[in-house]
Design a protein around this nucleic acid. Structure first.
Length: 490
RNA sequence: CGGGGUGUAGUUCAGUCCGGUAGAAUGCCUGCUUUGGGAGCAGGAGGUCGUCAGUUCGAAUCUGGCCACCCCGACCA
């Protein structure tokens, strides 16, 4: 029988979970709230990492690594920061185990209590700024442009594979600057990097914006974000970039001497994307048959499946395929030739569709006779017979087409799912169907919360690139400088 | 953390009400036939029924505690 997943229309959340598990991306682990990222899922994450890391290096950043454990006292130095994270921190209190008196088990050695407890990092601003204090004396030491790839822990109540897990992987950039303008510029630059990555690699259009005070990162002056729309009409924050002002410099007393000899606190930014992007990737393009991957992030872009009756035929196909594989690899296309005898072609077709491989080539006896290849593209499910000549050029073109098509489809979906509401009645009607809804808001947290309570929708961001048309708040009627972006969100 | 649900073979589940030797499908293994869309037939292996205690001659089944997972809410990247 076939390996099936729940259709999106039946139960979107179940579809997502089935897909993540059956495509071999990740699975729940023995540890509450933590997942195992499986090789195929991790391969996609590695592709993301490679692309992002290249972009970070190209914008002048270097990688470094800071400790997993953060002394509790560091954590409490920035008041709003601790308030934001306190409820979800794992705490290390002891450093040794011992055998239980009956010798059968093991228990915490109460004697080995830490003088000061450690927090398992939920983010690294505090440990990094306590370190930067020692690195920075003068404007000559600035800027510091550092990124780290790391795991962090946020003790979430309810978890979902990739979208929200107690432990997740991410990168966090932490930069230090001599001026406010420079730190703001850095914040915006990295927001741009994330938007470019999302659109170019993930084929996922995003809205750039600034968060409301309510949604702002704990400890930031301003939080910027990119917001994407998933197929079920819910919004997902795909990346954040924070202008931290001098908040952490003040908290950790990081001052520098300026050119003209005065002393000032250092200006900061931080920015991150996480394995949550994997969830965004799945929910952006995939269908009821499984994952659909954009070629730019597919662990292998092309899979070749031989169709044969006997060993002799397989050898002929292998020879025929070798030429094609060589040509594809020369074009930089990652290709897998699946000649496993343990599974039949039909099984493999279904399996690679589940795994979202963008292009599948099937080669059988008929192709050897006619000098053809059967080409199937995952995004549209089209199957065509190509002449084998110049197959590398054709596949290159096809991969580009698929990448573009996925972006266009996602953009088209977002546009069809974006609405404007000029009254609360209109808003409530629209928001129920999912999608982005632009509406006027008076800028007050109180209003935002009331709208959330009534509709479950939140202000995703105040878009950076929308027209500044004045109007009246849909709830209070108070003046509003521009429409903001509302949605129900992950 | 609140409400609801579920724990039985690798997986999905039946059996639980009404206690009496552990079941199906699928997957797995072997052989033969197959191979252009998740193959067919035959044979085979596989479970201290989440866990701990209690009731009983006897517990997957009844009682209680604990644990885990899933769904819905509150919180979050």
């Amino acid at each position: 029988m076939s390996k099936e997943i729940t259709p999106r229309g039946t139960d979107y959340a179940q579809w997502y979970q089935d897909l993540v598990i059956k495509a071999g991306l990740a699975e729940p682990s023995a540890v509450r709230g933590c997942m195992v990222i499986k090789p195929y899922g991790y391969a996609i994450w590695e592709k993301m990492q490679q692309a992002l890391d290249r972009m970070f290096k190209d914008t002048g950043h270097s990688n470094a690594y800071f400790p997993l454990f953060i002394p509790k006292s560091f954590f409490s130095k920035e008041a709003s920061h601790i308030k934001g994270f306190a409820k979800e921190c794992a705490v290390v209190t002891h450093y040794r185990l011992k055998s239980t008196p009956d010798g059968k088990g093991i228990e915490v050695d109460k004697e080995a209590k830490l003088e000061e407890e450690y927090i398992v990092r939920p983010t690294s601003e505090t440990i990094i700024w306590s370190t930067y204090k020692g690195w920075i004396q003068s404007y000559r030491d600035l800027p510091i442009l550092v990124n780290q790839w790391a795991n962090v822990v946020r003790w979430e109540m309810r978890t979902r594979l990739f979208l929200r897990t107690a432990e997740f992987l991410w990168q966090e950039g932490h930069t230090a600057h001599a001026t406010r303008d420079e730190a703001v510029e850095e914040t915006m630059k990295m927001l741009g990097v994330y938007a470019e990555f999302s659109e170019k690699f993930m084929a996922l259009p995003v809205i750039k914006g600034v968060k409301t005070p309510f949604e702002r990162f704990a400890g930031a002056v301003d939080t910027y974000c990119i917001e994407a729309l998933m197929q079920d009409g819910k919004a997902l924050q795909a990346g954040t970039s924070h202008f931290l002002g001098q908040n952490f410099a003040r908290a950790f007393d990081v001052k520098f001497t300026t050119k003209d000899g005065t002393r000032d606190f250092v200006w900061a930014s931080s920015w991150g994307v996480s394995t949550r992007l994997m969830g965004a990737l799945v929910m952006a393009h995939s269908d009821d048959d499984g994952l659909v991957l954009p070629p730019m992030l597919a662990p292998y872009q092309v899979v070749i499946v031989p169709v044969y009756r006997n060993e002799e035929q397989l050898e002929k196909i292998r020879a025929y395929a070798d030429g094609i594989i060589g040509a594809l690899k020369a074009k930089g296309i990652s290709t897998r030739f699946d000649d496993r005898d343990t599974h039949k072609p039909g099984w493999k077709f279904a399996e690679y569709e589940m795994k979202g491989v963008p292009v599948r080539l099937a080669i059988g006896p008929r192709d050897l006779e006619n000098n053809t290849v059967e080409v199937a593209r995952r995004d549209t499910r089209e199957k065509t017979n190509y002449q084998a000549v110049d197959i590398d050029v054709k596949v290159t073109h096809l991969l580009n087409q698929i990448q573009e098509n996925l972006y266009d489809k996602a953009l088209d979906f977002r546009e069809r799912s974006t609405y404007h509401a000029d009254s609360m009645e209109e808003f409530e009607k629209l928001i129920g169907n999912g999608g982005f809804v632009y509406a006027h808001w008076d800028g007050k947290t109180e209003t935002e919360l009331k709208i959330k309570e009534r509709t479950k929708a939140t202000v995703r961001c105040i878009p950076l690139e929308s027209r500044r048309e004045k109007g009246k708040c849909i709830l209070t009627g108070d003046p509003s400088p521009q429409k903001v972006l509302f949605a129900r969100a992950y």
